[in-house]
């Protein structure tokens, strides 16, 4: 294996860890409430603009923008839940899909209206020079994003599987009425899930902004990547999202390197259609 290809794979894995992070937000909501947040990509976009504003207004790097974006998005998530999602989740499928899709349009074109359609980028040097490991060059923002991405996914997984909050959330997703009988308020747990999911998405967005262009429509591309990741990983599964995210990051990087950068999205979309055809329950899902 040539060194360049190895380089491409490493950067794909780092990218994949971030994909996995924002996809786990989507999969959490989906698994817990059987609701698909079509505004998920636009949540990421919002966090990217937050990072951009933090940089232009205060000159703050990821150390400032990551917590700010996390809190901002957790708030947006909880608001979306209480004002919109709670009311539509038991309604007809049309209302469910329209509701969050309307939110997506609202956020996307608010950003367009506020910031214009220009592509924005944070300075390359925001985190200093690239690192060198055994001859492999790794950009600092991508390394940071990949590492934090993995850590946050691990944290999310531990919250869901090892804490009483996680058990209560699981109880509500299994049977909301039964959970209520034993004294769990379903809407609080669902709001908590939205806060966690959107907060994780906020972290992912602030990290992506350090190495990816920001534009009002970037959420559309990212949403499709998240959908592919979740479908591939099996809905509701955070570990599944991690494996799928890493896989997609590598597939995207390698195809950009081998075929050309224009086609990297095309490959991801084709992958999605293939998954739907041949393994709709995902790689790790049950048949």
């Amino acid at each position: 294996m040539s060194l360049t290809l190895l380089q491409v794979i490493v950067s794909g894995l780092l990218l994949g860890a971030v994909y996995a992070l924002f996809a786990s937000g989507l999969t959490l909501i989906w698994g817990m409430m059987n609701v698909v947040n079509f505004a998920h990509g636009d949540f990421v976009m919002l966090a990217m603009y937050a990072a951009f504003v933090v940089w232009t207004a205060f000159g703050g790097g990821p150390a400032a923008s990551v917590p700010i974006a996390a809190m901002l998005l957790a708030t947006v998530g909880v608001l979306s839940y209480f004002l919109l999602v709670r009311h539509i989740m038991r309604g007809p499928m049309l209302a469910q899909i329209l509701g969050t899709f309307g939110l997506a349009l609202f956020l996307r074109y608010s950003a367009f209206w506020l910031f214009g359609s220009d592509f924005r980028t944070l300075p390359d040097t925001i985190l200093g020079a690239p690192f060198e490991f055994w001859g492999l060059r790794v950009d600092a923002p991508r390394l940071l994003a990949g590492a934090i991405g993995l850590l946050v996914i691990l944290g999310l997984h531990l919250i869901l599987t090892r804490t009483s909050l996680g058990s209560k959330m699981l109880a509500v997703s299994e049977d909301a009425v039964a959970a209520q009988i034993v004294g769990i308020r379903p809407e609080y747990m669902q709001a908590a899930a939205w806060a966690l999911a959107a907060g994780a998405t906020g972290i992912a967005g602030a990290l992506i902004a350090t190495f990816f262009y920001t534009s009002p429509t970037v959420g559309e591309t990212l949403a499709i990547i998240a959908f592919v990741t979740v479908s591939l990983g099996g809905f509701g599964s955070v570990p599944g999202a991690l494996v799928a995210g890493l896989l997609i990051g590598v597939v995207e990087s390698v195809s950009a390197y081998v075929i050309g950068p224009v086609y990297k999205d095309v490959i991801v979309y084709i992958l999605f259609v293939l998954v739907l055809w041949f393994r709709p329950q995902g790689l790790m899902g049950k048949a």
Binding site: L84, I88, A95, F101, G102, L105, Y109, S110, F112
Partner: peptide, 20 residues
Amino acid sequence: AGLTFVVYGAIIMIIARFLP
């Protein structure tokens, strides 16, 4: 054009919530 679609988004949410 941007504002039109902000309004569209709001309309879609309102339809979903109140007027399915």
